[in-house]
């Protein structure tokens, strides 16, 4: 019968229309911004810099190695390396960025900077409401604006942050063990030095610097 297909389609539409009053499956929209859908844990928008402790400048993990600057596909990161060094999370003196800018009008949220960073210093934020009326300066984030604490990182990507923390703790323990061994070796060396040792004796192997 002509029109049967149309009627069947109409019935389907009616089922969806009235269904949206009773079934959540059929009413999929929410009233943004009053109502929001929760962001996915893996969601990524723009990068931020992680710092440990309370002081953002002292705790910054970034060592200004500039790998992310080089690998960034649209080249939106700009880093200036410091002349002096400051201790990192493991107490090892490292360079730090005196300038770290990300132009989020160029950034395409591809996460390659996060993947290539060997120091777990740059991560992806989930903040997406970043509209501003300033086209240049408003969308150019400097290192102060980019710095977010490790606690914040834990709130947005809990699983990932825990993994990162355990990895860093492991590395730190390794570094500390190495430093301890080195210190012990140095102490042993120092203890051994006053004794009249034969001049042909080799220095203890594995002595740290």
């Amino acid at each position: 019968m002509l029109g049967e297909g149309i009627l069947k389609g109409m019935a389907e539409t009616a089922r969806n229309f009235f269904g949206s009053y009773v079934s959540k499956e059929r009413l999929t929209t929410v009233e943004y911004p009053e109502e929001r859908v929760p962001t996915a844990e893996n969601a990524r928008v723009f990068p931020f810099l992680v710092y440990d402790g309370a002081e953002w400048e002292a705790g910054m993990r970034c060592v200004a190695c500039q790998i992310c600057e080089k690998e960034c596909p649209p080249k939106c990161i700009l880093i200036d390396k410091s002349k002096d060094k400051k201790p990192d999370y493991a107490g090892k003196p490292q360079f730090y960025p005196t300038r770290f800018d990300i132009d989020i009008s160029v950034c395409m949220s591809c996460q390659i900077c996060v993947e290539v960073c060997p120091f777990e210093a740059i991560k992806m934020d989930t903040q997406f409401e970043l509209a501003t009326d300033d086209r240049f300066a408003g969308l150019l984030l400097d290192r102060k604006e980019l710095a977010k604490s490790n606690e914040y990182y834990h709130t947005i990507h809990p699983t990932e942050a825990t993994e990162v923390d355990s990895r860093l703790a492991e590395e730190k323990a390794k570094v500390e063990a190495k430093a301890k061994a080195a210190a012990e070796a140095a102490a042993a060396k120092a203890a051994a030095a006053p004794n009249p040792a034969p001049p042909a004796d080799k220095p203890p192997a594995g002595g740290g610097d």
Binding site: T13, T28, A40, N42, A43, R44, S109, C110, M124
Partner: peptide, 29 residues
């Protein structure tokens, strides 16, 4: 609208899966 919205309703479910895995709905990389 109607057929497109039906399609987009299902697409949304799939894009949510993409987002929860890859971090982005469309630019998955």
């Amino acid at each position: 609208g109607t057929p497109l919205m039906y399609a987009f309703r299902e697409r949304e479910k799939i894009l949510d899966l993409f987002e929860s895995l890859t971090g982005s709905r469309m630019m998955c990389n």
